[in-house]
Amino acid sequence: MAALALREKAILLDEEALGRALRRMAHEIVERHAGTRGLLLVGIRRRGVPLARRMAREIEAFEAVAPPIGELDITLYRDDLTTKHEHPQVGRTHMPENPAGKSIVLVDDVLYTGRTVRAALDALVDLGRPAQIQLAVLIDRGHRELPIRADYVGKNVPTAKREVVEVRLHEIDGRDEVALLEPGGGPGTR
């Protein structure tokens, strides 16, 4: 499959807006949980992990307690590998403590079809029986294929299916921003 050339259509969040969105979500999480007791933030690999870490730092800044962070790799739970890479890279799952009985907030960068979250729910439940699972995403771009919704959203963005939302984070990509890309434009297209 030849890679489609993608053109940047818009910047949905710049560094400041991204930071503000995370700060607001951190506040909402603490408000809804009435504190941080029993709270466990679980980032979905890859970009959910740094996002969870940052929200934990925000929470520590105003609650003086940082909730523990888990890292979840869901490759072995996916149902859409066919459409991904030929050799899926299996990452490591790491939980700082047993998720059983915890109030878990799953963190991911983009909520789209809901299939990643479905896989993450299966993976989490296999690790123990959490008291509750909520979902926090930086971008909700619609087009759900499963009955899944987010409890905390950084920004809702109506998109077309052919468009691509790209979340770039300092820890992985060297800068903070969210871009909306669309096919066409660049060299390599006809």
Binding site: T75, R92, T93, H94, L127
Partner: peptide, 11 residues
């Protein structure tokens, strides 16, 4: 390594 982690899980 990832598989070894799976083998350490309760299930």
């Amino acid at each position: 390594e990832s598989m070894a982690e799976v083998l350490c899980r309760p299930i």
